[in-house]
Design a protein around this nucleic acid. Structure first.
Lengths: 147, 147
DNA sequence: CACCATCACTTGCTTAATCAAGTGAAGAGT
DNA sequence: ACTCTTCACTTGATTAAGCAAGTGATGGTG
């Protein structure tokens, strides 16, 4: 057996870091009445609107069912609008959604990036970014090894 | 406003990577009737046993309530044992727990680390590990900025 | 024209996690 | 000895997500 402990340890630390920072992020976003997942979805909508639900689900790594419910909540709170459009629903931000996003984005970006900027150098962050890009792309394509 | 997009992008990619790889990991561990979280807990128990529930919860970034339920499940399936010991419960692996862990560990380690080894060089993994260590440690200590 | 398949989305059911209130055993203060 | 606090853990209620079956509109085929 090769020595896989380094990868495993890295994986575990990354898991812990993400759950931890996600919790903090959720707590932080409470002041805007959002969760991290919602914020993420809103940003995606803003960036890619008009977009369909399934594309959105794919982008944020969530099932279609999950996305359906998330959007139902966001719609109920008046942050987004779903329009039946041909046989697809296209998603748009409402004015209120725009506004909340405007209010939340700067501090949230600052907060998220502070996790990195507090302890890593500019160089390190760049190289981390490169690695995460590779890793994420790869993980999407990856499939299970045979039994 | 400083440019925080690099940190944010890194954060988002990391979140996506972890949810994605966690899902794959869960799927993988189904063949041992375990979830990633359970595997993680079992490893911690093996490493630190005898250990109390709250220490365990702290280690794996879960609330005490969550840990209570997780351990209840593991106990019901006969993988661990909880002994009332003074006013604390100490957790131990049972023979069955040991055995399942033995069976699962090599392939799981291999699988987890393959996420990294498939796309990064040895050097990169090392530097990633160092960064994750810093990041994790920092995130545990971090608190919310004032409103 | 009638039927079928497909696609995009919804919904019932289950699982797992959080939060906060509850329990019960130890030990401290008077 | 009796109450009070604290500590470690449990548990009820809620929330979010996954899976898989269901719905309803579109378009293709005999």
């Amino acid at each position: 057996m090769k020595n896989h402990t380094l990868g495993t340890l890295t994986w575990i630390r990354m898991m812990r870091f993400t759950t931890q920072s996600n919790q903090l992020s959720n707590e932080f976003l409470k002041r805007f009445d959002l969760t991290t997942a919602q914020f993420d979805v809103l940003i995606q909508i803003k960036t890619y609107a008009p977009i369909t639900q399934s594309q959105l689900a794919e982008k944020v790594t969530v099932t279609q069912g999950g996305m359906s419910r998330m959007l139902a909540r966001l719609e109920k709170e008046g942050l987004i609008e779903r329009k039946q459009n041909w046989k697809t629903k296209t998603i748009l931000l409402t004015a209120k959604g725009e506004q909340i996003l405007q209010a939340a984005t700067p501090s949230q970006l600052h907060f998220q990036s502070s996790f990195f900027e507090d302890v890593l150098t500019e160089e390190e962050i760049k190289s981390l970014y490169t690695m995460m890009t590779k890793l994420e792309k790869h993980s999407r394509a990856k499939h299970l090894p045979p039994v």
